[in-house]
Write a protein that binds this DNA or RNA. Structure first.
Lengths: 211, 211
DNA sequence: AATTTTATGTAACTTGTGTTACAGAACAAC
DNA sequence: GTTGTTCTGTAACACAAGTTACATAAAATT
């Protein structure tokens, strides 16, 4: 995904010039930390390729997955935190090999002022993140763990564009904020129900599990 | 709270003029619905006095409290939803007598373009809401119900600036997305532990409950 | 091949929360 | 005062999820 493909920038190529000329491109391999919890942020990461996984970490080390940032999107929390001179309350890691363009806040300040298309972009991404977060709240508050596991597997299958995903129960448990045994137990149940087929380090989603 | 007191507007009184000349002021009494779930939004509510309570409603009618919008703040989700021609996924009601200035999206579009101070305002509020939501996620995911009840009571005590709040267990239960019996049970436990004193329709927070 | 590490399966148990049901208390309406 | 309504207290139970403990299986390392 190149920046040219971001819908708001198509009519304003000068935005892209500004981003590329002042931004710093950086690559990360799977699992690498991009933004640490409690890190001070002074630039905004725009995903060029790959994917960023955004987690919230509790004071006592428990984590939970918030959402993924896909190519063409940016980490809006980084954006806002930097504007408000705040510290990040989230942890962002690379999901697969990922290339990120870090845009300094000084550039953002200029773009805010001079390019309405940039604002359209920011507001669109913000809405998306916010909406995602609301879904997370809803899921944690009202859904049972088996539903949440299935939803998570479905999402990963869709992202991988492959009915088989490669992940351990432990990793899934961390993302969902629960314990490994719980995930193993429920996945086994789902296998008995014909929703998935399990293997070491992999989960295959069957047609029945698609809906 | 008059708009003059919003920090970003102090150096840009023309924003206030624009808001007042195009906005529509409306008053609500306690509990009245300001934005309905699934309502289409075409204006942004800025709270002048009182307070707006923002809840998320599940498909099957279950609710959970997201946050409060206090005087000088605005409902950012309404803002974004309107920009993206989206439908509201939240329900906003008046918490006590509340006066709201509804600013049409057309005005917002102009302000975005012409007044950097307006953007500063929007971004500040946005950050605040986002941060609030993250705290909600954290609470639901990792805190036990008794902690959440106590936190809720503390928040209400602070907002009321009075150690006694007037609320039924049922109302508290709805806000926390649980059942009334659960709240009654845990509150009673908290009373036994000397954290609160209970009465019909009221909860008094004791010093021991403050920390 | 033998050993170690990592991932999974399973059982037994605890705990927190949701559910149902009902009784009594406080309050409001008549 | 009597009646009806709303709120709270409590008990008994159901169930989802967390916890501990250990066995087995698969992969990696030596």
């Amino acid at each position: 995904m190149e920046l040219q493909n971001i819908q708001e920038f198509k009519t304003a190529p000068s935005i892209i010039d500004k981003l590329l000329s002042t931004g710093l491109e950086k690559s990360f391999s799977n699992g690498e930390i991009i933004i640490n919890e409690n890190a001070f942020i002074n630039s905004i990461p725009i995903v060029k390729s790959g994917c960023i996984k955004v987690m919230r970490t509790d004071d006592d080390g428990k984590e939970i997955l918030l959402y993924y940032i896909k190519p063409g999107d940016c980490c809006i929390m980084g954006f806002l935190g930097s504007l408000n001179d705040q510290i990040s309350r989230i942890k962002a890691t690379a999901e697969g090999d990922t290339t990120v363009l870090f845009v300094p806040v000084t550039t953002v300040a200029i773009l805010n002022r001079e390019h309405p298309e940039w604002l359209d972009y920011i507001f669109r991404i913000y809405y998306k993140c916010y909406d995602n977060l609301l879904e997370v709240v809803n899921a944690i508050a009202f859904k049972k763990m088996d539903e949440r596991i299935l939803a998570s597997v479905r999402q990963k299958v869709e992202m991988a564009q492959n009915d088989t995903i490669f992940i351990t129960h432990e990793q899934l448990a961390i993302e969902l904020g629960t314990a490994r045994v719980v995930v193993s137990r429920l996945l086994k149940q789902m296998e008995d129900d014909g929703l998935v087929i399990l293997g070491r380090n992999k989960i295959k989603l069957l047609e029945k599990g698609l809906l």
